[in-house]
Amino acid sequence: MGHRTKNHAPVRSPPSVPGLPAPSGRTTIRLVDVHFGYGSRSVFTGLDLIVPEGQITAVLGPSGSGKSTLLELMTGQKTASRGRVEVAGEEVGSLSRRELFRLRRRMGVLFQDGALFTDLSVFENVAFPVREHTRLPEMLVHHLALMKLETVGLRGASTLYPAQLSGGMARRVALARSIVLDPQIMFYDEPLVGLDPIAKGMILRLIVHLNRSLGITSVIVSHDVPEMLETADWCYLIAEGRVQGAGSPSSLRQVTSPWVRQFVSGSAEGPVPFHYPARDYAADLFGTGRSA
């Protein structure tokens, strides 16, 4: 377990996390018995998850279930307190900063709000990783950045600044920036949040296009259930620190677990409570105790 590989290809054999349906094919990311928390608040209590190579994997869950934290564990921004996080055959938690940066050069991350550099133009934002990691002549940097901007349909906006872009456009520029060095793994953190239906459609089309044409392994964390069930090849539903359901979109629709059914159908009734845990209502209203 956890052996290092020098080549870029994932080497794990088909996954076998006990108790979970397993996606077919080779594994790019594998989380085993991962525990993580913020102070006394536990976020993950034994999370097991596998991301197959070259497919789109969606991680679904309600707000606050730790989806973004999961991405941060995969990219090495956070370290699990227990368990193992393996990405492309390397155990992320045991890497030195230099090794982690070497691994990250094979990753692309699309942040929820784009996280564009506000003092740089659209073109400069996309060219930034190329300039930082390569010594390519300026003409090639120019070509590369414009090609990626053309891919996301924003070549014409190359001279604009992030403050001049709509939410959807900013997300597309951030996508162009994250793919400019042709990553092998793409992480999308809530890529559809706050977008209108047209912009959502554009982003989803780009995610699928990048995955199918370049064979990029894609991990999307989202709570947009219908869109993800349409787009993903494999889905995980997480809540209460664990994976509550896993499978292909069609199989998830058949799952009988009340939790999964409630989440997939978006119902207000079910095991996921509407109310935050509180003491007795009558006692709060009329009792002797004081509320917070």
């Binding site: 940066f101 070497r102 990250r104 942040f111 709000d113 996280a115 564009l116 930082e132």
Partner: peptide, 18 residues
């Protein structure tokens, strides 16, 4: 501080830029 709040520093980190 704003770069931190708007995740620009995180974006650099995950781009393997120190």
């Amino acid at each position: 501080g704003l770069m931190r709040a708007t995740r620009q520093i995180d974006a650099m980190e995950v781009m393997a830029v120190d």
